[in-house]
Design a protein around this nucleic acid. Structure first.
Lengths: 171, 171
DNA sequence: GTTAGTGCAAAGACTTTGCACACCG
DNA sequence: CGGTGTGCAAAGTCTTTGCACTAAC
């Protein structure tokens, strides 16, 4: 069937490539715009693309500070905004009141949806052309032309259902 | 096909009924819990169910104050939370950083999705069993059991596409 | 009269902004 | 050196909370 997936936190050497290509892309963007490179931007970019997927700003900051404790919050926000403006990162909002970004690497070029575990927070991506086509069809029937989709399915993953709610009390 | 719809702001006398049945439901809930009725709660409930659909708290407050200017923000938040806790309202988050609630009337008993116009903000609801079934299927394939869905399709409605972006400059 | 409910303003959580200094080019 | 980028802290948003007061029951 026409679905593909990708797990968060799954260690992949592809991330090294992502970091490298993102750095190159950023360098190009900065040059085009006459913007400057900086130690902080490099750290943020490297860290962000090294983390791979759905990074919340506070988590990113924490990680960035591990590499360079003197980086400020504002810089992280500003850099991520910059990345987003130039299509290198995609802002995501999962409704928990925290800004998240997702790397806009090749595997994210297509619009995709999210499965989010309400137990452990694991996020799984999937893509279904069938679903997407149906949604466009319904929208068109209502006179809408879809520009952007936001599809999140919340539920419990296999592992969390396995322990049958034990970790609730443990947490 | 298996989709149903409902437009926002469309004046319907059904809303009078919604208000009445919501008031009754609230009265029952309050009595069960040994909670008190109050002038403010009545106003908020009446206003909320009278507005019909996807009400942002600030808009609700404004409207409520038209009926009773002395109602405070906190009361509106508290009342809506109460309604949500007892299943009379459903919290919605469209990612604009404002709390929204939707009446949990009979027509909202089913899970449904939203079409949101990026031009004029119009929200249209739709329901598609086909799409929902497919989503459940995909989720199950990943070991997930879906508890809650969030599907929002952003785009431009027919009217906004008609004026071809003129109102952008006007706004 | 108890005690829940209210209004106000203060406190929170997160993000953005203003400003002086730092540093890239 | 000129101007962009940074850090800090202040300001902004939106929502929640603490507290004295009001008002249900």
């Amino acid at each position: 069937m026409s679905t593909t997936t990708r797990q968060d936190r799954e260690p992949r050497s592809a991330e090294r490539d992502a970091v490298r290509s993102a750095e190159r892309a950023l360098a190009r963007v900065l040059e085009e715009k006459g913007l400057r490179r900086s130690r902080q931007r490099d750290v943020v970019v490297r860290t962000f693309f090294g983390m791979g997927g759905h990074v919340a700003v506070d988590a990113l900051l924490e990680q960035v500070r591990r590499a360079d404790p003197r980086v400020g919050v504002a810089t992280v926000y500003r850099t991520m905004k910059l990345l987003a403006e130039h299509g290198l990162a995609v802002p995501r909002d999962f409704g928990d009141g925290r800004a998240r970004y997702e790397p806009a690497t090749h595997r994210h070029a297509h619009s995709h949806d999210h499965l989010i575990c309400t137990g452990c927070g694991t996020i799984v991506e999937f893509e279904s052309h069938r679903i997407e086509a149906l949604q466009h069809r319904v929208a068109r029937r209502h006179g809408f032309e879809v520009e952007r989709r936001r599809v999140e399915l919340y539920g419990r993953c296999a592992r969390c259902r396995g322990v049958e709610g034990n970790e609730e009390t443990a947490a």
